[in-house]
C-alpha cells in the first residue's frame, strides 16, 4: 500500500482536527438541501404530469326551457370522444360532484337542490390535443360549457416549486461557500502553526507544489472522513423522514428518491473533498508566493 509521507505535522494541529467536523456538518446540510430540492422538483414534475394529461369540462345547468342537461352532456361526450388527442371522457355522476363540494358546504347541506354543474373528466392522449380548438368547439356547440385545462393552477404550482427549489440550491451554494471559507481558515492556521517547517522545506528546495500537496492531501483526507460521516447521517435522517412522511401520511409529496437522484447526493461528499483539496492547494500556493 502506498504510504503518504507528511513532512508537516498537519494531523496534529487543532485547525486540521476541526476540519472533519465542519465538513461533516456542511455535507449533512448540503445533502439535506439537495434532497429537498430534488424531492420538490420530482413532486412538481409528477403533479404537472398527472394534471397535464387531464382536463375538466363543466357543463352549467341552463334556464328552464332550454335543452335538457342530460342531452347537453351526451352532446359534449360525443364531441370530446371524436376529438383527436382525447383518449377518454367520462361524466361524473351527480353523487361524485356532490362529494366534491361537500367539504365546503357541509355534509348536512341539501345539495340535491343546488344547480351543480355536471363535470366531465377528460383524459388527453399525449400532446396531440389542440386545447384552444376544443375550447372553441365547446363554446360554439354546447353553450354554458367551460373547459378547464388546469393551466392556472399548474402555473402557480410550478412557480412555487421553482422558487423553493431556487432557495434550496441557494442554501446549498451558501453551505459550499461556508465550507470553502472554513478550509481557507484551517489551511492558513496550519501554515501559521507550521511556519518554521514550511520555511525550512522552502529553503531546502521544496517546490511550492510539493508543500501545497501536503496540505492538499491532508485537507482531502479530513474532508472525505467528515464528508462520509455527514452523508451517512443525512441518509439516516432522510430514511427517518421517509418513514414519517410516507404515503400513509396523506401528503401529496413523496420523499423516496429515484436512483439517479441518489447518485447526485453521493456527489456532495465527493465534491466537498475535491473542493477542500483544491481550496487548500490554491491557498497554500498564494501564501507561499510571499516567500523569496
Amino acid at each position: 500500500m502506498l504510504k503518504i509521507h507528511y513532512d508537516l505535522p498537519l494531523h496534529r494541529d487543532s485547525a486540521s482536527r476541526f476540519l472533519p467536523w465542519i465538513t461533516g456538518l456542511m455535507v449533512f446540510l448540503g445533502v439535506m438541501s439537495l434532497a429537498f430540492a430534488l424531492v420538490l422538483g420530482n413532486a412538481a414534475s409528477s403533479w404537472s404530469q398527472a394534471l397535464g394529461s387531464s382536463l375538466t369540462v363543466q357543463i352549467l345547468p341552463l334556464a328552464p326551457g332550454k335543452p335538457g342537461q342530460d342531452e347537453r352532456v351526451r352532446q359534449a361526450l360525443d364531441l370530446l370522444r371524436e376529438t383527436p388527442g382525447v383518449s377518454a371522457a367520462r361524466a361524473l355522476p351527480k353523487s361524485e360532484s356532490e362529494k366534491l363540494v361537500s367539504p365546503w358546504l357541509g355534509s348536512n347541506a341539501s345539495l340535491s337542490d343546488l344547480p351543480l354543474p355536471t363535470l366531465v373528466d377528460v383524459r388527453a392522449d399525449g400532446t396531440s390535443l389542440n386545447v384552444a380548438l376544443l375550447r372553441q368547439r365547446l363554446d360554439a356547440e354546447i353553450p354554458g360549457s367551460v373547459l378547464d385545462d388546469h393551466g392556472n393552477w399548474l402555473g402557480e404550482v410550478s412557480r412555487a416549486a421553482v422558487t423553493v427549489q431556487t432557495l434550496a440550491f441557494g442554501a446549498l451554494a451558501l453551505i459550499a461557500l461556508t465550507a470553502i471559507l472554513a478550509v481557507i481558515f484551517a489551511v492558513r492556521a496550519g501554515l501559521q502553526l507550521n511556519r518554521s517547517t514550511v520555511e525550512l522545506l522552502h529553503i531546502m528546495g521544496a517546490s511550492d507544489r510539493y508543500i501545497a500537496r501536503q496540505f492538499q492531501r491532508s485537507a482531502a483526507g479530513n474532508a472525505s472522513r467528515g464528508g462520509l460521516a455527514g452523508l451517512v447521517l443525512a441518509v439516516l435522517a432522510l430514511f427517518a423522514a421517509q418513514r414519517i412522511v410516507g404515503p400513509q401520511s396523506g401528503l401529496p409529496i413523496r420523499l423516496a428518491l429515484p436512483l439517479t437522484d441518489c447518485l447526485w447526493l453521493l456527489l456532495v461528499p465527493l465534491a466537498a473533498t475535491f473542493f477542500a483539496a483544491l481550496t487548500a492547494r490554491l491557498t497554500v500556493l498564494a501564501t507561499l508566493k510571499r516567500l523569496p
Partner: peptide
Amino acid sequence: RPELSLLRRRIGVVFQDFRLIDHL
C-alpha cells in the same frame, strides 16, 4: 521560482539551531 527551488537543492545548510523537524 521553480528554478530557484532546483538551485536550493544544490545547497546544504547546517543551521545554528539545527531546525530539525520534531515529529519526524
